[in-house]
Simulated scan of single mutants.
Amino acid sequence: MSPLELHTRALELAVGVIGTVQPEQLVLPTPCAGWDLRRLLEHVVGQQRGFAAAARGAGPDRALFRDVPVHGDPAGAFRRSAEELTAAFSAASAGAGEPRVWLPEIRDDGPFPLRHAIGFHLLDTLVHAWDVAAALGAPAGIAAAVDGDGPLAAALLRLAGLVPAGPVDRAPGRAFRECREPADGAGPFDRALALLGRDPAWGPPAR
């Protein structure tokens, strides 16, 4: 299965999770420290639009990745940006050779091969879909769906293992925290979460 096909599958799973979000749930806390569900989804939509712009040939402009308000339609905002991104990745993949794309939020000193950009976003898509599901109190569904899809589970675990894990890379305020030890018998999704510093057993803080 190609990186683009795996990415499309990841987006489909994310759409299934985010499609259940109701406007009144946007105030819920998430596993992303200090972010409620609205802030998380605005970040995700902004990232999708930024990756789409990069795939269309935009230069290293961080403003293209800024958060996008989701207002009262979080599912629609996510779905539209996912469709835009899928079209951009598909068009870029169809050209001769492999394009290189600028992702200034990851690295400022040069562009990445398109397949790396697709992989980065696949990882973000599945992890943030889990963040949303955890905020809603039902994270097991997406973990089970990925674990049941061998190629997608293998891709996620491989990509999570490639994320730099030095002290600077995992400092407070970074996208991922220090690696955790996975629980005995953990499946691929939970092992990937642990590699990225997520707690698979996360729950909202007690009030």
Rank of each mutant, 00 (worst) to 15 (best):
S90W: 03
G34V: 11
H7P: 07
R180F: 11
V15N: 05
P29Y: 05
A194N: 05
G137A: 00
G203Q: 10
A183R: 15
V70L: 14
P139D: 00
A153N: 07
R100Y: 03
I142W: 00
L64S: 08
V132M: 07
A92D: 02
G150I: 10
P204H: 12
V163N: 01
P204T: 10
D73R: 14
V127L: 12
H71I: 03
Q22R: 15
W102C: 11
R191L: 05
G57H: 08
D147L: 07
A58H: 13
L195G: 01
V17E: 01
T125F: 05
V44P: 06
E178Q: 15
A10V: 09
L152D: 08
L11A: 02
V15E: 14
A138L: 01
L37T: 04
A55S: 10
L162R: 15
L196H: 03
V101K: 00
V163P: 02
R38Q: 13
P29I: 06
L11D: 07
P111I: 02
P167D: 14
A14T: 08
D61C: 10
T125R: 11
A77I: 09
H43P: 11
L157A: 12
P172G: 10
G148A: 06
G173H: 12
D147A: 05
V146K: 05
L28D: 00
W202Q: 03
D131K: 02
L13P: 08
G203I: 01
R198F: 06
D184Q: 13
